[in-house]
Design a protein around this nucleic acid. Structure first.
Length: 479
RNA sequence: GGCGGCAUAGCCAAGUGGUAAGGCAGAGGUCUGCAAAACCUUUAUCCCCCAGUUCGAAUCUGGGUGCCGCCUCCA
């Protein structure tokens, strides 16, 4: 048993702007930190994309045999949460809890696996305070009027992730800070960002060496990475909007303190757009996950997301999601063909042709995924395998079952369940079915065809539905 | 203004030097009392435009056009 894994995975690293060979820092252990949600509102399709993409990546790495430690945080202290809670007249902790539960429910529905660790910012306040103290000691941060700011000028690599030039940033930032006069007095430089913000007695806050306050947005991720995973991790991921300033600032804080890289690979997913504009709460053009789940299965939503490469934008339209839903039925059928085994047959014996199909499929799938997680190709391979399965004759049951199992195995790597729901009928439809039978019975009675009418009533009784004739028509109840 | 990305069939979408994956929709067929479903076959002489490099480019280079994102909260 070797502790190295022989797979030539290549990933696009935002830090270098290039596709690079993926080589974990330590054997087959892969430490991943994915920036999670700020829990102040319902999650929409854009959030779903981010979670589905990185869930799929960690599933694939585990599939290859890596020991993945996947950490995804919950941001439960933040201006947006505080403001929203104020609007609703409830405490910020209660609001955060409400949307944390909603997020978990959505993720579960989308078959997004739970992370190995899911720290909340409020659980790491004391570690964040220590982090800030250490930065002050090293001369990278300064206290000013109860706030603490990161001294961007003290970190020479600032801008390396977002490819930002400090002078250019200063031009833009100066105007904004001038607009907010108090800030311009507190900060040494307009680009300096808050590590710790002072808070009034009535506001959400914690005691600190600089007085009562709360952490800045970027601090929690740096701190939680440090305490849960260590100074340097393999993969740090998130939406592309986080590249600058969020991840840039995380790098500044962590690398100024530790003097070593925060993450080896920085991976970012593209956005969902609507009519070529980004889907965002601020634009009011979002579809919540709950809305979508009313019409589409988790499998359909995952395929919709994964049929586009994760770094490209996806233009959302109901039509394209409906197209996925239509196509998905073939995968489901191929994965759930007759499961009847030949009782005398040896299940492991399959034809050379099918063996060849299997071997080729496995190789192609892994080659696609190794190329910066090309899920679009991977999905097309699932369709091709389905065609093979559906083309097999009935007498090749063993081959068919074998390849169906193969299809399910690899679909699961993409988080697809391919559960056969074609014969599952909801309550409302069941009611309509009973009404339909009673209608036919009523017509039979009207035609004096009492034999048919009685057969219908007897058959319904046999399956547990009692029919009671009343002067105003037939009534029924189950059980 | 600075940084980055995208442009492939009616629609969605892979493909980054060797002659256009896959899905939806459409067309033809098999099956069928009719219908639907299913299954089979088929659908881009060409990849936004112009010029260049090359034996060869959707793929590389230069220029142009259009669209989008980040630089302020955002996944």
């Amino acid at each position: 048993m070797t502790d190295q894994i022989e797979h030539k995975i290549q990933v696009f690293n935002t830090l270098t702007g290039k596709k690079e060979d993926f080589v974990p820092l330590s054997g087959k252990t892969v430490k991943i930190y994915a920036c999670g949600p700020t829990v102040y509102d319902s999650s929409h399709l854009g959030h779903a994309r981010k979670e589905i993409v990185w869930d799929t990546v960690q599933r694939y790495l585990r599939f290859l045999g890596y020991d993945v430690i996947y950490v995804r945080n919950i941001t439960d202290v933040d201006d947006k949460i505080i403001n929203r809670a104020k609007e609703r007249g409830i405490g910020p902790d209660r609001l955060a809890r409400e949307y944390t539960y909603a997020f978990w429910r959505d993720m579960d529905a989308l078959n997004v696996a739970s992370p190995d660790f899911e720290p909340r910012a409020t659980e790491f306040i004391s570690q964040m305070i220590s982090f800030v103290q250490d930065l002050i000691k090293k001369g990278h941060a300064y206290e000013s009027g109860g706030d603490v700011y990161f001294d961007v000028a003290s970190f020479k690599d600032y801008g390396k992730l977002g490819k930002q030039n400090l002078e250019q940033l200063l031009v833009g930032a100066r105007e904004q800070v001038i607009a907010q006069e108090t800030l311009s007095q507190l900060k040494k430089s307009p680009v300096d960002f808050a590590l710790w913000k002072s808070a009034g007695k009535e506001e959400l806050g914690w005691p600190s060496p600089w007085g009562r306050g709360r952490p800045g947005w970027h601090l929690e991720c740096s701190t939680m990475v440090k305490h849960i995973l260590g100074d340097t991790i393999d993969i740090h991921s998130g939406g592309e909007d986080l590249v600058f300033p969020h991840h840039e600032n995380e790098i500044a804080q962590s690398e100024a303190l530790h003097e070593k890289p925060l993450a080896k690979y920085w991976l970012h997913n593209g956005f969902i757009q609507v009519s070529s504009e980004k889907m965002a709460k601020s634009l009011g053009n979002f579809k919540t996950i709950q809305d979508l789940l009313e019409q589409y299965s988790a499998d359909a939503i995952r395929i919709f997301v994964l049929q586009t490469h994760y770094r490209n934008p996806i233009d959302f339209s109901p039509e394209s999601l409906a197209a996925v839903k239509a196509g998905l039925s073939r995968l489901i059928r191929a994965a759930n063909l007759s499961q009847v085994e030949n009782e005398n047959g040896n299940h492991s014996v399959i034809s050379p042709d099918s063996e060849k199909v299997e071997k080729q499929f496995r190789a192609d799938f892994e080659q696609a995924m190794n190329n910066d997680f090309n899920t679009a190709i991977a999905i097309s391979l699932l369709y091709q395998l389905s065609d093979h399965i559906l083309a097999l004759k009935d007498k090749q049951v063993q081959d068919r079952n074998h390849l169906s199992a193969l299809l399910k195995e690899y679909a699961a790597v993409l988080g697809l369940k391919l559960t056969d729901r074609r014969k599952v009928v909801d309550t409302e439809t069941s009611e309509k079915l009973v009404e339909l039978l009673l209608d036919m019975r009523q017509k039979a009675k009207a035609n004096k065809d009492f034999a048919t009418a009685d057969t219908i009533r007897k058959s319904l009784t046999d399956i547990g539905i009692s029919v009671m004739d009343t002067p105003s028509g037939a009534n029924w109840e189950a059980g």
